[in-house]
Design a protein around this nucleic acid. Structure first.
Lengths: 125, 125
DNA sequence: CTAGGACCTCACGTTGACGTCAGAGGCAAG
DNA sequence: CTTGCCTCTGACGTCAACGTGAGGTCCTAG
């Protein structure tokens, strides 16, 4: 496959794929004229890369962890790195959840006319 | 309170507090000589700002939503904005959870010696 | 042969939440 | 008065994952 097809199938830009190669995330064969050639597995790999990016991992982290995630194998220092990323993700989920609850309070107060205000106003009974 | 004390109590940098003022997130009184003076409530406000930042909201969003979050009041367009941010947070939580599960597979395979590989290897029985 | 996509390599631009440095003024203690 | 820490206003630097041309090459259809 050529780079345009991989881009279309995986939903990322051509520029992004070239960037991934530069970051050692997605090696590519070259045609005699210098064009990149990809195996079909590249599409899945790109999607996995996107998944990890969307979880806040950096290129450097993905470079280290991607082969282990794909193969299931790991060395002790990689496991440590995995646990660190996992902890970071947990913390991030907690932060997001806390913020969401905070927003939900306002949403509920605004969309529920029968809502008795429990946060910012006194109850005059 | 002066800016250094607010910074220390809220756990952010002095630079960040000046940035918040620039972004209209944290107004400050001024002493006759031009130094910023904050009320004790500023500390809580900064912590709320940090919470929203950590959930991925931009300064512009926080500017719009912060007064409503603090007061519990809201207008229809703000509610729309709240719902949009809420949806974004949900999507982010899902992405994080999916990535965490992916990492957990590798972690489990690496830390559980009795683990039967169910992902990357065939079962020769 | 030729038009026109798709591809190539630089290489600079973007964005947001600050970090950091420079130079100048403010303020309580000794 | 002066030492020393805090604060002020600019204003440039950072970092990461790309976006966006510029200028040139490849290749397939007509």
């Amino acid at each position: 496959m050529r780079i345009g097809e991989v881009a279309e199938r995986s939903g990322v830009s051509v520029r992004a794929l070239r960037y991934y190669e530069e970051q050692q995330l997605l090696p590519a064969q070259r045609s005699p004229s210098g064009q990149r050639r990809y195996s079909p597995a590249a599409v899945e790999r790109v999607q996995l890369i996107q998944l990890l990016y969307s979880a806040g991992l950096s290129s450097a982290s993905i470079v280290r962890l991607l082969p282990c995630v794909e193969s299931g194998t790991s060395t002790p220092d990689v496991v440590e790195h995995l646990l660190a990323e996992r902890a970071r993700i947990d913390a991030q989920v907690h932060a997001l959840t806390a913020a969401r609850e905070r927003l939900d309070e306002v949403i509920v107060a605004a969309t529920d006319p029968a809502h008795t205000c429990t946060v910012s106003g006194p109850l005059d009974t």
